[in-house]
């Protein structure tokens, strides 16, 4: 992303979106995103990944954990990408792996956005001591080296599983979003319409939820995209380091097993390249979509 979130005029943006709403039956934000060529490609790619994940049982030829085939076979008509050292079908694992990545991206993205909103909005709106205390935690979250913390949390947790990975990613990933949302609400809270709402007798919670949040929707979406992207990468990273749940089929664990199973020595390039490529494509789709979100945030970048 090329714009600094602090400088975004999120109010004007919301108004443009509302305008576009009126001129078409599709939601305004979607119209703006769709018009951007790069973003359109990204959205189509992401849609393809979602379809694959949802329809995995239909598309995949075998179960991801079915290990009744010959071990470490190369690509063939029966096994397009070959089989693993344990005799599982790589192609089927690849299809099912999309589910894990997307679930982690969605859930961890939503969770860290929610935490970031709760902390950032409270700190920015109330200011004073509350802000000092919450800002301290935000800063702590920003300066703590994330990767070692993730490794420690994931390595020493008593339980394993996808849930744990999601929690670890959320705990380590909310701070940046909170900082940005805090900065934005500090500029929005001094608007006259906020004073007007106070004079109209509205409560603080209502002012935040009904007067301020609608004016920073774009920032929240940007924050969610960033968090989801980070979460997908973090999940793959943790799984590759062997800190994931070995029972879950994910692109990270595939990479981990390919590397442990000696994919390079047996010449099984497809086993190693396919999950890496899938990850790269998913992350590319997010990056391409960010071009469109930039255009949402900054009207000058729109391809009129």
């Amino acid at each position: 992303m090329t714009t600094t979130p602090e400088t975004i005029d999120t109010e004007a943006l919301r108004v443009t979106a509302l305008d576009a709403d009126a001129s078409s039956r599709l939601p305004g934000w979607f119209v703006i995103l769709w018009r951007n060529g790069k973003c359109r490609v990204g959205m189509l790619m992401l849609a393809a990944f979602i379809v694959i994940a949802v329809l995995a049982p239909v598309i995949a030829p075998y179960g991801p954990r079915l290990d009744e085939f010959g071990a470490s076979e190369g690509p063939s008509a029966a096994h397009w990408l070959g089989t693993t050292a344990r005799g599982e079908d790589v192609f089927s694992q690849l299809i099912y792996g999309a589910r894990t990545s997307l679930i982690v991206g969605l859930v961890a993205g939503v969770l860290s956005t929610l935490i970031a909103m709760a902390v950032g909005l409270t700190a920015g709106y109330l200011r004073g001591v509350v802000d000092e205390v919450l800002s301290f935690f935000i800063n702590l979250g920003l300066v703590v080296p994330v990767l070692p913390l993730m490794i420690v949390l994931a390595g020493y947790a008593p339980v394993k599983g996808l849930g744990l990975i999601i929690i670890v990613i959320t705990v380590t990933g909310w701070a940046y979003g909170a900082r940005i949302k805090r900065a934005q609400i500090i500029t929005l809270r001094t608007r006259d319409y906020i004073t007007a709402a106070k004079f109209a007798g509205d409560s603080t919670a209502r002012i935040i939820a009904f007067e301020i949040v609608p004016n920073m929707i774009s920032l929240i979406v940007v924050g969610f995209m960033g968090a989801a992207l980070g979460a997908i990468g973090a999940e793959a990273g943790l799984a590759f380091l062997g800190l994931g749940d070995p029972q879950t089929v994910s692109w990270g664990t595939m990479l981990n097993q390919a590397s442990l199973g000696g994919a390079l020595t047996t010449g099984q390039w497809a086993w190693l390249v396919a999950p890496g490529l899938a990850l790269a494509l998913l992350i590319t789709s997010f990056t391409l979509m960010n071009f469109g979100i930039d255009a949402l945030s900054n009207p000058h970048l729109r391809e009129d």
């Binding site: 608007r191 319409y193 007007a196 009904f210 609608p214």
Partner: peptide
């Protein structure tokens, strides 16, 4: 208020 452009919430 002085500024009618900031006294009304643009989304409401």
């Amino acid at each position: 208020f002085q500024d009618p452009f900031s006294a009304l919430n643009p989304t409401r």
